[in-house]
Nucleic acid binder design. Structure first.
Lengths: 343, 343
DNA sequence: TTGTAAGCGTTATCAA
DNA sequence: TTGATAACGCTTACAA
């Protein structure tokens, strides 16, 4: 059984070279001859060698850790659906790049202390992947002063010009527009949209803006009363018939801005004998796994979470390696519609 | 604006002492006089000092990281409900103890390479919190040989005698028994139980065993056909009327072994005009947040996830500090029933 | 192409 | 009670 705690010195001893040669070989330095390099790599593999993370980070190299900073409020059921899917994808790609994920909240829930600042001082991570819209300007500045890369994901920062960051978002405006266009193309003329109350973040405003644009493009008058925010939960969706019966009575399409709301609503509709999509057409947003479980299956806007995660991970790895870091890379990905049965 | 990268030497310079005095003071060594200790701590606070994690781990052996090892299959919607709640609690407690969480799968999904073995070699963590039942004996051994603590949480290990580990589980047998007793006390005599097909782990067998015990205690004959495994999803619960109509017709109570199955079932029942709890009583398991969203609200068995997380975190911190580590601590917590409307 | 040696920030050992 | 100093495992000038 091979030893734990193999060091480059152990390898050096076996290979009959100095430990710096081993270091260079394993780091693929061009200075080392192919012959010795291969020999050393073979020995390292055979001895099941891994670099000591602490030593590596001390001597000015890399920690092999990425901080994924999130907001605790996304831990709720319902809202968590999309974000937790995104995290799965992030880990998937980072693992392939031999990076570990330190997953944490931006700020201590009680003291408010910044975890970003702490990690920076502790020098525990090589970069920050931020899925949080309320990071302070001060923290963004600290990261930059420390020379570490940041990639903003999923949501726009509130306290920082997004132009200053590398970011990857879904085009929520297009998503809202797409959803609404789809309903219109299915013959809807009075379309209700349901943003969320519990998250006041930019993305829902964008979706609503896209909704308005689609109406306008199709010569449909926008009506303020057809925008009704509810919490992003199954139950609120289910109770919609109770909370706004008059509005629902005069509507032929609903664009729910999260799938879970639509899920609750579809159930209530079925119980009331309202036929979906015949009597009323419904579309959601996110393409969470539950969409296929609803009855009828929910038409929705797919957020390109895998692609987003892939881009963000590739980008942060590039930035860590100082590749193409002269300018920011900012992408806003088009979502696409997934047509199922509810429309 | 205070500097990032403050070292103990910087503090030493300001305080007019040696860096080793600073190290001792900040580590609360009893050798340092209260006066200098306070002075040094004040300076450290003022300079916003944090220990360099790499250096610390190189020198002593504290990384300030705990690995939380999980199984990707728990990332699915439905099954994730309970486990992701548990992770939230774990982070909650570990954060309070100034520990960061490295969250990762036990094994590389493609290569099968062990992340545990890698972390051990890299010396990246101070301990392992394992929420995974298929960790190899070899990996448990490696952890032990490395002298690091392991705490097993939520599920029994398959490849390791659980007696060898510190663990904290829910008493699934009692849970199954409690659930069944409750239905019996409500007058049910023909009780169906629904374990899961998609997770073959021990916990469901235990719940079923508890179910049997309760029947026996109450003089009710166990019938094989009243144990019907389905996947742990909303849809499978919903479709139960289609898949086993004859069985359902002759049953007066159902014990679903996950809440999400019950959720789907309740919806289907409502649509069929079956009154819950009048015609049929239903109980779930887990006490996931959705339980309050179901109609009627779901009676369920509450798994003490917060308590479990707290015990596990306290225990691993103790073990890291070499406190009370002569013997294993193993607790199996009683779940309790949460009676809502479905029974 | 490879080796020697300094240095990263901390803890721990030994002296004082 | 405190200070020098070595050591942890690695990277990286600088030398050879």
């Amino acid at each position: 059984m091979e030893n734990l705690k193999v060091t480059i010195k152990d390898i050096a001893a076996v290979a009959g070279v100095s430990h710096s040669t081993v270091s260079r070989a394993l780091n693929d330095s061009p200075q080392i001859s192919p012959g010795t390099k291969d020999k050393i790599k073979d020995i390292a593999r055979a001895m099941n060698f891994e670099f000591n993370a602490g030593a590596r980070s001390l001597s000015g190299r890399k920690t092999g850790n990425i901080a994924v900073v999130y907001q605790a409020k996304y831990d709720q059921f319902g809202s968590s659906l999309y974000v937790s899917q995104l995290f799965i994808e992030l880990r998937h790609f980072l693992e392939r790049m031999d990076m570990d994920v330190i997953l944490l909240e931006g700020y201590h829930p009680e003291t408010g202390a910044s975890n970003i600042s702490r990690l920076l001082r502790q020098q525990k991570v090589d970069g920050f992947l931020i899925v949080h819209n309320l990071i302070t300007k001060r923290d963004y500045d600290s990261i930059q002063r420390a020379g570490l890369p940041v990639v903003q994901l999923h949501m726009s920062p509130v306290f920082c010009q997004k132009e200053e960051l590398d970011y990857f978002f879904t085009d929520n405006f297009m998503g809202g527009r797409l959803a609404t266009e789809h309903l219109i193309s299915r013959g809807c003329r009075r379309i209700l949209t349901i943003p969320t109350n519990d998250f006041d973040s930019e993305e829902f405003k964008q979706r609503t803006a896209g909704y308005k644009q689609a109406l306008k493009d199709n010569g449909i008058q926008f009506e303020e009363e057809l925008v009704v925010g509810i919490d992003s939960t199954y139950l609120k969706g289910y109770q919609l018939f109770n909370s706004i019966p008059e509005i629902l009575a005069n509507v032929d399409g609903i664009f729910f801005q999260t799938d879970i709301q639509a899920f609750g609503f579809l159930t209530a509709a079925r119980e009331r004998g309202i036929r979906i999509p015949e009597d009323l057409k419904v579309i959601g947003f996110d393409d969470a796994p539950i969409c296929e479980s609803t009855i009828p299956q929910l038409t929705t806007i797919h957020q390109p979470r895998r692609k987003l995660a892939e881009l963000a991970c590739n980008r942060i790895i590039d930035l860590i390696s100082k590749r193409n870091n002269e300018s920011r890379i900012q992408e806003v990905l088009f979502p696409h519609i997934v047509i199922r049965e509810s429309s």
